[in-house]
């Protein structure tokens, strides 16, 4: 098991290296000049040259890449060209918001998705199956921002039971924090739960037709034991992989929802940075996303091994 873990972590290093190269070079290919953006429309050539020199924008590509990587090694991702804050500072501000949002959304998605998937599978072809599949289809096809707007209209404008937008840090007021989080988390979670429900249903149906489920029934076990002890463990395997991928998506792709609910999150940070040619922030954020994806994959592998004994001890 330790070997497995070390092996996986060892494999992450070259992956991160390649990601850093790709992020850095793609960034150079983007049209637009950060110095021009910073200096404004009517800037003198002298000012532009000064900015270029200050931020080492005139250095050769390899030198700039080297400086960037050396900085990362020291925990320094550079300075935002726009706000003059360090990138690390910006990320540590924004990431907790998105992390909390994504985690809540994931809890909602897994709870709904897995329980509906099981219900649909055991009542295959019945009314419960039909209802669950309709809800899943609704969750998948409804755009999150649109559902978000409808939620705001209903809960914040009409009934006035939840705040329409904004964010209260967890450390400041946990209850208000939850009140501001619940709508965006539900909107995001519903979309993911549809995907999870479908995968749970099909995995469960496949597992329920296996011989060992018949063996379990032959022992006189109750249907609940058969489903939760014998079938769910096996059906969980594809759902774990999917869950990790979806969680990664949530961490990097919540920008629309964050915009609708005015959440100061990671997605908004990245989009703003791209529009402003804020190189350092984009690079730092993308690298950070890549690392998070890799870590999630590692966790998924560990969870896999915990559920699937065939992977252990290899």
């Amino acid at each position: 098991m330790t070997r497995f873990l070390l092996q996986r972590i060892g494999l992450m290093i070259p992956t991160i290296f390649f990601v850093s190269v790709i992020v850095f070079s793609l960034q150079q290919l983007l049209p637009g000049d950060p110095a021009l953006t910073m200096a404004g429309d009517e800037a003198s050539p002298a000012l532009i040259a000064e900015i270029r020199a200050k931020y080492h924008l005139d250095d050769p590509l390899l030198v700039r890449y080297g400086k960037w990587v050396a900085g990362i090694a020291q925990g320094d991702l550079g300075i935002s060209l726009r706000t003059q804050q360090t990138v690390v500072q910006l990320l540590t501000q924004k990431i907790p918001v998105t992390l909390e949002l994504a985690t809540l959304a994931m809890i909602i998605a897994l709870t709904f998705g897995i329980s509906m998937g099981i219900l649909a599978a055991i009542s295959r072809g019945g009314p419960m199956d039909y209802v669950a599949r309709c809800i899943a289809l609704f969750g998948i096809s409804m755009p999150a921002f649109w559902l978000g707007i409808l939620f705001i209209l209903l809960f914040a404008v009409k009934w006035r039971i939840l705040p329409a937008s904004g964010y209260v840090p967890l450390t400041e007021n946990p209850l208000e924090n939850l009140r501001s989080m619940i709508m965006p988390a539900t909107v995001l979670g519903l979309a993911v739960s549809g995907v999870i429900m479908r995968h749970t249903r099909s995995a469960m149906l496949q597992v329920l037709s296996n011989d060992y489920v018949r063996t379990a029934r032959a022992k006189g076990l109750s249907e609940t034991t058969v489903i939760f002890v014998h079938a769910l463990r096996n059906a969980a395997l594809p759902v774990i992989t999917l869950g990790a991928l979806e969680f990664g998506q949530l961490l990097s792709g919540t920008v629309l929802t964050e915009t609708v609910f005015s959440m100061p999150g990671f997605g908004k940070l990245v989009v703003d940075a791209v529009f402003n040619r804020d190189y350092a922030v984009v690079q730092g954020a993308v690298l950070c996303t890549a690392v998070v994806f890799l870590l999630l994959n590692l966790f998924a592998d560990l969870a896999y091994a915990a559920v699937n004994p065939r992977l252990r001890g290899r």
Partner: peptide
Amino acid sequence: MIFQDPMTSLNPTL
């Protein structure tokens, strides 16, 4: 009951 195929009749995760 004892089933035909012991390869598939045992639960692989228990």
